[in-house]
Design a protein around this nucleic acid. Structure first.
Length: 278
DNA sequence: ATAGATTCCTGGCTGC
DNA sequence: TGCAGCCAGGAATCTA
């Protein structure tokens, strides 16, 4: 499940690998992966060069020298892996391949094909509602304690659903939401607007700390995640609640609770994260 | 504005 | 060993 740290790792790596590479061929192995166009449109990339790779929320934004744009969302099982000329670990679920003039290539693999690839003539043409509505970047300078409180105090949603919603704070998914709430001692069922300024500040700090640490650890590989070198991450060793339902809390030894909140399996400690009425 | 269900999709796991 | 049934979940879409 690539979330912000995993997508960030991939973008940083791709920036050092595919930029300046001239595209010689595009192979479409599964046409429906390109969500907003006939896959033939990708032939417009031939002869152009990838110029920069940026992370926008969980989207991977790739711009070419001629300002064409590929927008990639990995969803659950998507992978963007760069294969150097001498490297040959095959992608079993390859869906798209961009081959460069030096025969190295970038492959989009996706086991469950839930991911999304979009093509645009230029960045101004991007018309994906979810992309245009992306909220604040949690690792940016704009995401201050005050900014966090200003967002939470105006929402009646439960804090779990609030944090999963990309239009407020962008980049968090099920793993980092559960970890952030645990680290800041906030019960996932509480309404966002029930958080005090102090609690919102703690939440803001823990979100930034956990995301930064995970990037340092190369991201979390729970099942499918691989970086652009095809390697797994290490952050799963540091998870305190995600995937540990029914096991004991690492802080107080209480049995961790599991519940469906915000439509997602949620793991939390009812002692460390006590429920408070609004 | 918010909540909840449904859809997409396949590998991996459980239980018989 | 086989196979049905369920689960994983990001985001869009629908209903209430």
């Amino acid at each position: 499940m690539p979330e912000l740290p995993e997508v960030e790792v991939i973008c940083r790596q791709l920036n050092t690998k595919i930029c300046g590479k001239k595209i010689a061929a595009v192979d479409v192995l599964l046409a429906r992966m390109l969500r907003n166009n006939d896959a033939m449109v990708l032939n417009k990339l031939i002869g152009d060069c990838f110029e920069k790779v940026e992370r926008h929320g969980k989207y991977i934004f790739i711009e070419t020298m001629k300002k064409q744009v590929l927008l990639v969302h990995l969803r659950m099982t998507g992978r963007l892996i760069y294969h150097d000329v001498n490297k040959d670990n095959e992608e079993r679920y390859e869906r798209l391949r961009f081959t460069f003039v030096d025969n190295s290539y970038l492959t989009y693999g996706d086991t469950r094909t839930l991911g999304a690839v979009y093509y645009f003539e230029n960045k101004e043409a991007i018309d994906i509602p979810g992309y245009l509505a992306l909220g604040i970047e949690p690792l940016s300078d704009e995401f201050t304690a005050k900014a966090c409180y200003d967002l939470t105090k105006n929402s009646k949603m439960n804090i779990k659903a609030f944090l999963l919603n990309q239009k407020y704070i962008t980049g968090l998914g099920n793993i980092y939401v559960d970890e952030s709430l645990f680290a800041s001692h906030i019960n996932p069922k509480r309404r966002a607007n029930s958080l005090s300024a102090k609690e919102a500040e703690r939440l803001q700090q823990e979100i930034r700390r956990l995301l930064s640490a995970s990037i340092e650890h190369g991201g979390t590989t729970f099942r499918d995640y691989k970086n652009s070198d095809g390697e797994v991450g290490n952050n799963q060793k540091y998870l305190k609640v995600y995937g540990r339902g029914g096991e004991n809390c690492l802080v107080c030894n209480n049995e961790l609770s599991v519940a469906t909140i915000g439509g997602r399996t949620t793991v939390f400690c009812s002692k460390c994260q006590p429920y408070k009425e609004d």
